[in-house]
Structure formats: C-alpha cells, structure tokens
C-alpha cells in the first residue's frame, strides 16, 4: 500500500539548531497516526514541513507517491491537506457558516455574483449544515457567532471545516489541549468519524490516554528524527513514554532498555 503522505530525510536547521535531522514520516490510508515527542523533538517542525508552513532544507515529501513541494500553507491546502490549529482555528465574531467557508466563499450565480460579488449565504449555510450533520455536531443555529459556542463546539467547527475541504489528509495540532474531559471525548469521537469516512488523520498530542484511545499507529519523534513506529496494542504507556524520552529504544519491534538509570527512574526495569 502506498502511503498517502510520506517524507524522507527531512532536514531543517535554524542557525546552529537542527530542528529536523533526517526525519522520515509515513501516513497510511484510512488511519489515525499519532505523532508524539518531547518538547524540542521536532514534532512541530515536522508537521509544519508537511503542511507547507515551513520549507525543509533537505529531503523530500511525497503525496500519493509523487514528490510535492509546498511553498506556503495555501499550496498544501490546495493539495487536500487541511490543518486544524490548536487555538487559531476560527474567527470569533463570525458565524459558523461564514467560518466554514472563510477564504473559500461561494458567490451567487449570474450577474449578482460575477458583477456585484454577492455571496450565496443560503448555499453556504446549507452545505455547512450538511457537514456538521455528517460529523454529528449538534448546533442550534448556523448563524450564531462562533464566540457564543463552547470550546468543544468551536473545535468542532474547525474540525468540520478541515474535513469538508480535506480530500487527502487532516492534520490536527493538539486539538484537545484546551478542552475539558467531556469536550475532548467529543473531539475524539469526531476524529474517529473522520477516519471512518476514509480520510487519514495525523494527530499531534501530548495526551497519552488520548493517543492510546484513538491512534492506529504512533510515530515517535526524538532529537529531530523518527525513532519508532508503534502500534498502541503492542506497548503500554510507560514504555512509549520511555521510548519518547530515550530511556528505551525499539529493536525488532521490542522495547529495550537503553538508559538503565532513566528507565529505573520511571519504574520500568
């Protein structure tokens, strides 16, 4: 099976700091892939490179097996890669339908649209309603401003927008970080539904229980590289954290203690 999105040997340097040091990445069709790593491991740089927010110095990115190059986020979006940013997702005072179509507005047919540039608000509302229903996001009204929604509903709007436009990949950066328990659960349900519709999801998260609950595979990033690809079923949380921090390494699919002192410190040997 060809990975939907793939990266080989990505390198990104900022002066003397190497953010990405030959990082690989593979996202398979129809999966939820969690990307985890300690602070400074290069998670954010990796995701930014994959979504066009930064340009790697070396290495290549392949979409459906074909090499691609994104000069800015807009180009990645045009290729069907949508990103949900943690707290930069929606314009607060605008309504839900407007947010869904922000930057991609639909104009009326005929001279009203072409000459007078009039928006087709009805159509945008109807299509928004359909997308919200697909993801089972219950909302009273699509004309209410997003700021009147709860944090979870707001995130729901952002996810719905990403899913609506993502033909290839949805990337979510810490989508539950700012949410409470119940709302986080709603977002995780939503991620499942997105996957079940056939769109693969990349989930960046610090929250191990969430990762274990929802991920089909885990990409562990450390010191600017991918150090392991795991299945949550094969490892427990403590092991994964140990791999993430370098206390253990993965050899032939088995986690092996690499740093005895560190492993003992977290009670793993």
């Amino acid at each position: 099976m060809t990975p939907v999105l793939q990266a080989r040997g990505l390198v990104k340097r900022y002066g003397h700091v190497t953010a990405l040091d030959g990082a690989d990445f593979d996202l398979m069709p129809g999966e939820v892939l969690a990307v985890i790593g300690d602070n400074g491991a290069g998670k954010t740089s990796l995701i930014k490179a994959l979504t066009g927010a930064l340009q790697p110095d070396e290495g290549e990115i392949l979409l459906d097996g074909k090499p691609v190059r994104f000069r800015d986020p807009l180009e990645a979006r045009r290729q069907g890669i949508e990103t949900v940013y943690q707290d930069l997702a929606v314009a607060a005072s605008l309504d839900i339908a407007t947010n869904m179509f922000l930057g991609r507005e639909v104009r009326k047919r005929g001279p009203l649209g072409t000459v007078f540039r009039m928006l087709d608000k009805k159509r945008m509302r109807e299509e928004s309603a359909r997308h919200m229903e697909d993801l089972k996001i219950g909302l009273r009204s699509l004309t209410q401003p997003v700021e009147s929604l709860s944090g979870g509903q707001r995130q729901g709007v952002a996810v719905a927008r990403a899913v609506a436009w993502a033909s290839n990949v949805v990337v979510m950066d810490e989508p539950t970080a700012a949410l409470g328990v119940k709302e986080s659960g709603q977002v995780l349900d939503m991620i499942r539904r997105v996957r079940d519709r056939g769109t693969p999801v990349v989930l960046i998260s610090h929250n191990m229980p969430h990762v274990f609950e929802i991920a089909d595979r885990i990409h562990v990033q450390r010191l600017g590289r991918r150090v392991a690809q795991l299945k949550p079923a094969d490892h427990n949380m403590a092991e994964v954290v140990a791999i993430m921090t370098g206390a253990m390494t993965v050899t032939d699919g088995k986690a092996v203690v690499a740093d005895k002192g560190a492993a003992e410190a977290i009670g793993l040997s």
Partner: peptide
C-alpha cells in the same frame, strides 16, 4: 467584507485560512 471582519478578529486566523 467577511475577510475584513476575520482580519479584525485575528490576523493569524485569517492568514491561516488563506486570506
């Protein structure tokens, strides 16, 4: 007009949506 409002809400949100 929508873009003007979005910009006033948050320039970063507006930029990331491709405005």
């Amino acid at each position: 007009g929508r873009h003007v409002y979005a910009l006033g809400n948050s320039p970063e949100v507006a930029r990331l949506t491709g405005i």
